[in-house]
Design a protein around this nucleic acid. Structure first.
Lengths: 195, 195
DNA sequence: CGTCTATTTGAATGTACTCAAAAGCGGTGG
DNA sequence: CCACCGCTTTTGAGTACATTCAAATAGACG
């Protein structure tokens, strides 16, 4: 399937798959298109598949007891999207995943992912490596949240994901950074005055 | 080696190793004792090994530009300790790992870990699974930091790690929670008044 | 042009921090 | 056994960073 090429490229940057393995893999995944606003996963449902974003963008968010939304992550091209906690345990999800744009993604269902790991053991390594990297990023984010003020967290975000910033509404970025939309607006105002 | 039993038990709770594999594994790891206050890893050094804590306790922390310490995690019995970012890239570490008590741990050196993954492919799965769990915890911690006030974060910590709380000085717990020691003290005072 | 959503602005408030000082708590030695 | 030391915790006053709420402004789209 032509549609799966971005994923195969992504995987082959980490490990090397044979033709055969690629075919096997492609037989176990599926392609899906979602419209802006559609949910890939809803809080309370079991996360039955991991998504690899081919185009578009999703936000993963948590709705607290007070009804407030907290953005956990954005997923753009070549990123994964899911509620990993729900996926690995097959228990109800804590998070929602919703499309911020029309989004195409490749789905790994729980059953098929298990199957492909048994049939293509190399993928164990692949997933270990990418999850290691994700864990490192996650830890670094915790450190930033502990050690930086809101302004520096915003500047960091802007430097690291300049393209992501441009396609996502500011109030969602504020939520991702752990601040209110009003305060982010004030920070931006201040940054403009500074130079 | 008798000393490695806690690790073998831990691994066998996740996957199943044969006698042979256990022996192979044990030939590639080493046992190490550190005293209270000693460093397992220092910021700037390359993290050459992952540690599995058999007894004792370590803190992993980051020293910011302003000189302030930020505790990333505590590792007690049956937990891992390292700077994963440094370990997987073999680049200088951002974090320090220091013993809060006399600590015994099992070391996985970078080279030997690679070797064992090649010789015991099952371990790829093992590490994938435990890292997945670590990533889920890390994400949940981010959510707590975004969605809860300091008091609720403390209560959560106290509920989830009651034993850990008792053996670690309060000012380090404050740092882990992302608040000052003074403020944690005030929260505790307030909690006592409340009931 | 009007409507809807997103962003900005301002004033009042709250949560958590800083700094300084005092109190508590082990351990050690006289 | 008590006095002293170093380290941790507590307390308080003043401050800073970030939030809330309300209202005004700006942008996007039909």
């Amino acid at each position: 399937m032509d549609n799966f090429q971005p994923l195969l490229d992504y995987i082959n940057r980490v490990i090397e798959l044979t033709e055969e393995e690629e075919q096997k893999l492609c037989s176990l995944i599926s392609y899906r298109k979602l419209l802006k606003g559609q949910y890939f996963l809803q809080q309370g449902d079991v996360c039955k598949s991991n998504g690899f974003v081919v185009s578009g963008c999703t936000k993963t968010f948590y709705v607290g007891d007070d009804g407030q939304e907290h953005v956990i992550m954005f997923s753009v091209e070549d990123w994964w999207t899911s509620d990993m906690g729900s996926f690995i345990s097959q228990k109800p999800a804590d998070f929602n995943v919703q499309c911020l744009e029309n989004t195409s993604l490749i789905q790994f269902s729980y059953e098929n992912q298990e199957k492909m790991l048994l049939e293509i053991p190399k993928l164990e390594r692949f997933f270990r490596l990418i999850i290691e990297r994700a864990l490192v990023s996650s830890q670094k984010r915790i450190v930033r949240n502990l050690s930086m003020g809101a302004k520096d967290r915003y500047l960091h975000f802007r430097n690291v994901y300049p393209k992501v910033e441009q396609r996502i509404p500011q109030y969602l970025i504020a939520s991702y950074l752990g601040i209110t939309k009003e305060f982010l607006s004030k920070i931006k105002g201040q940054l403009i005055l500074e130079q």
